[in-house]
Nucleic acid binder design. Sequence first.
RNA 1: GCGAAUAUGGUGAAGUGGUUAACACGCCGGAUUGUGGCUCCGGUAUGCGUGGGUUCGAUCCCCACUAUUCGCCCCA
Length: 454
Amino acid sequence: MVTKPKGCHDIYGTEAKKWQYVNKVIDSLMEKYNYSYIRTPIFESSEVFHRGMGETTDVVTKETYDFVDRANRKMTLRPEGTAGIVRSYIENKMYGNMPNPVKLYYNGTMYRYERPQSGRDRELTQFGVELLGSDDPLSDAEVISIPVNLFKILGLQEIKVKINSLGDNASRNNYREALKKYFEPHISSFCEDCQERFVKNPLRILDCKVDKDNPILKNAPKTLDYLNEESNLRFEKVKEYLKALEVDYEVDPKLVRGLDYYNHTVFEIEAHVEGFGSNNVLGAGGRYNGLVELLDGPKTPGVGFACGIGRLMMALDLENIDLDIKDDVEIFVMAVSDTEKNYAVTLVQSLRMSGFKVEMDYTDRNLKGQFKQADRLNAKYLIILNDKDLAKNEIKVKNNITKEEITLELDYLLYYFDEVLQDEEYINENEDLTSDIECSCHHHDCKCHHEEGE
RNA sequence: GCGAAUAUGGUGAAGUGGUUAACACGCCGGAUUGUGGCUCCGGUAUGCGUGGGUUCGAUCCCCACUAUUCGCCCCA
């Protein structure tokens, strides 16, 4: 049997319904924040990621899907969203032909060549935003508030927002040197990984799980002590705005992010749900004021975040959150004889065109089998066709919840369903805070896939 | 890249070196000659991840491979 590639998933059935629902909430929320949807290629010239994310980051050195195309161009399946979007921002000169700041959001698949485990796949879906062209601390705070509000809307309770500041480049470099000097006499007592980190990325020693209780680590210099005045002031403003936005956060001086492009604000949002694996970061991001320039664009500040939808789904499941998913059928039309079936075909078509969700049998089941099928599909109403009734221009309709059955005149049928089914919709709307969510796509038959392979 | 565990039908699973691979759910059919969801009866794996080996004989023992799951590195 041919199997799917390692670390990938087929998403279908109820699971797919949940993804569609979450995508709708995202689209609706981003509409309110006035971010515009952007779709960039799933692969880019390798250079985009090598220069954008940093040559030495593990993601680039050993976790990308690289290939050469038939003209020997080096290509890479995107491991994250930011670099490609910044490339697009520059290439399309958005700094000149869109209102500043440029506010973009994406929702699509990313690829990382890693060993899969809980909360980590080779193909993952990320939703994220990039806000380009503003250095105002307000933009940092607002960007942090977006995933926080998304999680709130979806009903997640057990989350924790951690923030930190790496400061501007000068602060960051000072800190890095101070940290190296501090660790140097002790480094041989640390774990092997830390010795490696000491050379490659000393900041990440702070994240070590093995030596996390080591007093040397606990007393290490903090990023915040090395912020210059300007950076410090900036961080204070971010925190002020977060309070104004009612985002609960926790300053974590040991929080450093792995990607080279971050400076100033960095943040992570963790799920604290029982049963979550070790990969419990739902979303993370920060400011990257040097990135646009690094990719040959004009000097432009930027801030953004990315959020793994797969992990978000895990969190929703573990918190037992029921999304408002409508997977039940409104009307099931039952027919056995040839004349009944012929009539049913036309009737089903007409009901569907009137806006109802309608099903019938496709496998020549007997009446009993059709009742069972209607139950499997959670049909609300059953239309039970009968040759004798049809001869009298009548039709039997059974409420599958109350089991009440009535006989209607054929001409009255559409009117009847308009009444009973509209009433139910109205009740649902009052109960559901997110029911005004509409898709932002412009296809009239859109199902919010965003063509990204969900 | 490193480490560990697992691998039986549509599903959950039991099991044994040797005729027909337990049980449950599901599904299909019948009792019910067109109104069910309860009950009863019947059907439902050319077969125990793939390839080798040991053996008179392997689903059960050994090896390799593959896949899945979990952890490390790293990361959402």
